[in-house]
Structures are given as structure tokens and as C-alpha cells.
């Protein structure tokens, strides 16, 4: 219920952010119902119908294998949601735990946060590239790599926010009533961090899309056969003059989704607890 009110106040009077939210809902529906929406098999090759212009029945045209671009774009939405939620989950779970524990157990925390500092000395994409060198190209590994990269910033942010809450009276009260460490961290402190975590999640989701697309473009992201928007751009870029639609549609889809996620994050950030506002850096 609280979360619902939080969302209502965040989007009240913000038309662009509401549109962004609706777009994300559409993407999620497309991802869930991809087999029902896509008119063709995204992997089916048709050598005769190569590079067909957008029209009927190929709404977005076909690529150089004769695969239907619209169907691939619909299945691409599925990859977008999987990569986004996966990276957010890894980043929030790993980073969140490290951050919260560090702020609570100060001595251990001092050590853990120094480790985070060291990891943060590696620029994001460079760290992703270094990790990808050690792993194979797969959906899981892409999620893992992007998740780890953003776990460091998440740890830093949650560390700061937990530190602020630790000094609050309600935490002292919980300690006095004999609550254990686990209960204080997860039953008393964590519920106060839900809305800032949602904001952080939306920004990670947006960044993760850009990073995943960049990795796909460099040929170091998802396996080439996986229909993701990044892979579609990467594979078809040499046909840019012959078949411009092959780059327009997936590119626009990425831009719209990242933009929507940023708008949603921005709207949510403006309505969270003012104490935490400066902790979260988005766009």
C-alpha cells in the first residue's frame, strides 16, 4: 500500500514520466507474451526474402538472413527485461548486502568498503570487459558481469544510507527491546530503504541496457544467435546504407526504453525521503 502511494505521488503531474512508465509496461507485456505477439519465428531464416523493406507482413522489414525484424524486436524485449532485472537483482543483492553489513558492523565494514573502493578504481565498461575475458559469452554471464559492475556503486550508496539510519532513535529502541542483528538490519532498517532502492534499481536498469548493448556491439555480450536489440544493431550495421530500417527500429527501442527508465527513476527520486536524495546519482 505504501509503495502504491509512493508511486502515485511520484507520477502525479509528470506526463513524460507517466508515458515512460506506460512504455515500460508495454515492453514487459511484449516480453511476457512474445510468442503470442510475434507473427514469425525470430530465428527462422528465409534466403529469398532477405532485406525486405518494412511493410506487410514484415512490419519492420527483414534482416540479411531474411528473419522478421519485428518478431526479433519483440523477442528482444524479452532479453531487455531479463538482462535488466537480472543485473538489478545481482547489483542490489550483492551490493546491498555488502553496503548494509558494512555500515552495521563497522570494523568489518571498514575493510569491505576499502575493497569496494579498489573495485571502483576500474571504470565500468573496462571492468566488464576484463570479467568477460575470463568468461564465455552467455546470457547468465552478461547479467553477472553487469550486475557486479553496478554492485560496487550500490554498496557505496547503501553504506551511506544505512549509516544515516543507524543513528536513528527507532534503531536504538529496537536494540533496547532486545532485537538481534539480523532483525535490526532486515526488519527495522531495510523497510526504510525500499523506496530509495527502487530509485537505484531504475537507474541500474537503464545503465544496464546501455552497457549490454555496448557489449553486444563489441561482440563480447550475448551469444550472436540471441535476438537482443544490441545484437540486432551489431549484426546489421554493415547494411546501414542498403537497409536503414534494420538500425532504426532496434536503436529507437533501446533509446526509448533507457529514456523511460531514466524518467521513471528521476520521478521516483524526487518523491523519496529527502535525506537520501543526494545519495543516489542518476542521470
Amino acid at each position: 500500500m505504501n509503495t502504491l502511494i509512493f508511486f502515485q505521488t511520484a507520477f502525479a503531474g509528470r506526463r513524460l514520466a507517466t508515458l515512460g512508465f506506460l512504455w515500460l509496461v508495454m515492453i514487459t507485456v511484449a516480453a511476457l507474451a512474445a510468442p503470442l505477439i510475434a507473427p514469425f519465428d525470430p530465428l527462422e531464416i528465409d534466403p529469398v526474402g532477405r532485406l525486405a523493406e518494412p511493410g506487410w507482413p514484415n512490419l519492420f522489414g527483414t534482416d540479411h538472413f531474411g528473419r522478421d525484424t519485428f518478431s526479433r524486436a519483440v523477442y528482444g524485449a524479452r532479453m531487455t527485461v531479463i538482462i535488466g532485472t537480472g543485473s538489478v537483482a545481482v547489483a542490489l543483492l550483492a551490493g546491498g548486502l555488502i553496503g548494509m553489513i558494512s555500515a552495521y558492523f563497522t570494523r568489518l565494514g571498514h575493510f569491505l568498503m576499502r575493497c569496494v573502493d579498489v573495485l571502483m578504481a576500474f571504470p565500468a565498461l573496462l571492468m566488464a570487459l576484463a570479467l568477460i575475458t575470463l568468461l564465455e559469452r552467455s546470457v547468465f554471464n552478461t547479467i553477472l558481469v553487469i550486475g557486479i559492475v553496478y554492485a560496487t556503486t550500490t554498496a557505496r550508496i547503501l553504506y551511506g544510507m544505512t549509516l544515516k539510519l543507524r543513528g536513528e532513535v527507532f534503531v536504538d529502541a529496537a536494540v533496547c527491546s532486545g532485537a538481534g542483528h539480523f532483525s535490526i538490519l532486515f526488519r527495522h532498517i531495510l523497510p526504510n530503504l525500499v523506496s530509495p532502492l527502487l530509485v537505484q534499481a531504475s537507474f541500474i536498469f537503464a545503465f544496464a541496457q546501455l552497457q549490454a548493448a555496448a557489449l553486444d556491439f563489441l561482440g563480447l555480450g550475448l551469444p550472436p544467435e540471441v535476438p537482443s536489440w544490441g545484437n540486432m544493431l551489431s549484426e546489421e550495421r554493415i547494411y546501414v546504407t542498403r537497409a536503414p530500417w534494420l538500425l532504426i527500429y532496434p536503436g529507437m527501442l533501446i533509446v526509448l526504453s533507457v529514456f523511460s527508465m531514466n524518467l521513471v527513476g528521476d520521478a521516483l527520486r524526487d518523491s523519496i525521503d529527502p535525506r537520501f536524495k543526494d545519495d543516489i546519482a542518476g542521470v
Partner: peptide, 25 residues
Amino acid sequence: SSGAMLAASIPTFWLGLYLIMIFSV
């Protein structure tokens, strides 16, 4: 400010490809 947020949402390689298309090709 919305324009800036939109610009930050564009994949760099995609923008680069279109700049090549327009200004070079």
C-alpha cells in the same frame, strides 16, 4: 533538461553510426 536526459539515453555506437551515415556517407 528532458533533452539532456534523452541524449544520455542514446547508445554511443548508434549515434556514431548515424553521424557517419549523415556527415560522411
